[in-house]
Nucleic acid binder design. Structure first.
Lengths: 241, 241
DNA sequence: ATGCGACTATTGTCGTATAAATCAGCCGCA
DNA sequence: TGCGGCTGATTTATACGACAATAGTCGCAT
């Protein structure tokens, strides 16, 4: 039932993801996979994809290779390209996470993600308390200041909240924790619609200030507890909906 | 100083990573990048890579595209391919992590990794205590049994230890925690040489048994504490060297 | 001196051709 | 009939060659 692509299809694809045809294909295929479009029907062959989207097989192959690198598919001669079980997907790849949250959003997924945050961020705060430098403290306080400004309507509450949490992850001085900057930013940003619907949603400034203070005082235990309270509140909000 | 490839170079590349030419190139380039070979000199152009390794530009391009997908490089016309700052690398990609640990191993990296584990695994144990099913308990006990067998020389201690920890991550029933299975397995396996050099290295069976018992009894707090002790010990071992 | 345009190096895209892998089905033999 | 190898078809893997698009760079003209 696939018709030959017309000019508008091609044009849409060409500008789909800013960059180039390959990235457009990557985005299109990635979204299709995470939304489960190929759970029943088999994944199309390279030739079919190329024809259906009006691009060359080279472009298709490079997009499929990127999906392979992210763990979404695996390709073997004669057998074709097959979608991997979701357990093999690299959930910490920003693209994969974005596709999941944008296209397959669910409260369950949001809950599971915050269960991860409650492991990561309190420990990151504890590490930040130990290893931060002046620059980190400045960034954390800047984030806090932006949250206060947002409270008064002079800044974006989400961006401010994100900036605060990212500054702490960075201050941990541990590349594995720093890695979560992208993950947390992506997830917070895509889940904003949900959390906003839930309430007027002004983040708890005193709790955030408590974290910042504990870090500045190099009190790792207090920082851990304070951060745990922040994310614990979010979790309760989600669970108790 | 790059000479034209000879037949043995090509043959070596062809069988380098089991799969195919593209994966061989991916592995070669990935290792070169994480070892910092291109920190001073610029990253070669596609044409240069293709010629230097005796493969076509198609293969080169697909390998570079996979590196792009993992965040190691970024390519723009006329400017060429440039290595991204290591903060942009996807450290939770099994390939990237393996390259890092195999080729750039350091005690510092091992310490930072276990700082991550001490955040993840205790919380995973707590979740496992809440959400495990019979199958999970069986897997955890199987891992424990293998560790005891290894103690007596009847099994591989590392494999047994890994199996135990992976079973708990899986039992958390949270895909984000399950994601760390590959990461933990990769890191433990590649760091075995170091940990073995450090001591006769028989894992602390009673501590592991305590975790298993707490999970089986659905005592989340106890499971968290017990797991934290296990990894805390590892961290002390590393820090106090 | 400065701005504009031509040049050029590099990735982006395309099409085609051939190789290799592997599965299904056929054919022959016992 | 049953089994095993052979053959063909399908799909990815690899290769090559060409041109387009893009973006620095350099030089020229004003």
């Amino acid at each position: 039932m696939e018709s030959l692509p017309n000019d508008s299809d091609i044009a849409a694809n060409r500008h789909e993801l800013g960059r180039n045809l390959t990235h457009g294909m990557l985005d299109t295929l990635g979204r299709a996979i995470v939304t489960g479009r190929y759970e029943q029907r088999p994944f199309p062959t390279e030739a079919e994809i190329a024809k259906a989207h009006g691009v060359s097989r080279s472009v298709t192959r490079e997009a499929v290779k990127m999906l392979t690198a992210k763990g979404l598919v695996s390709a073997r001669p004669r057998q074709g390209t097959v979608v991997q079980p979701s357990g093999n997907w690299n959930l910490f790849d920003p693209d994969v996470l974005r596709w999941l949250l944008e296209r397959k959003f669910s409260v369950e997924l949001l809950r599971q993600f915050n269960q991860l945050r409650i492991a990561i961020e309190p420990e990151a705060a504890a590490l930040a308390a130990q290893f931060h430098d002046a620059e980190d403290i400045a960034a954390i306080h800047a984030g806090l200041a932006r949250m206060e400004a947002a409270e008064a309507g002079n800044d974006d509450p989400l961006d401010a909240d994100i900036a605060f949490h990212l500054a702490i992850l960075r201050a941990s001085k541990n590349p594995f924790y720093a890695q979560f900057q992208m993950v947390v930013a992506t997830a917070l940003r895509t889940s904003i619609r949900f959390t906003n619907r839930m309430r007027g949603r002004s983040a708890n400034i005193p709790d955030h200030a408590a974290v910042a203070d504990a870090i500045a005082l190099r009190d790792a235990a207090a920082a851990r507890i304070a951060m745990r309270r922040i994310i614990g509140d979010v979790l309760e909000l989600i669970a108790g909906d």
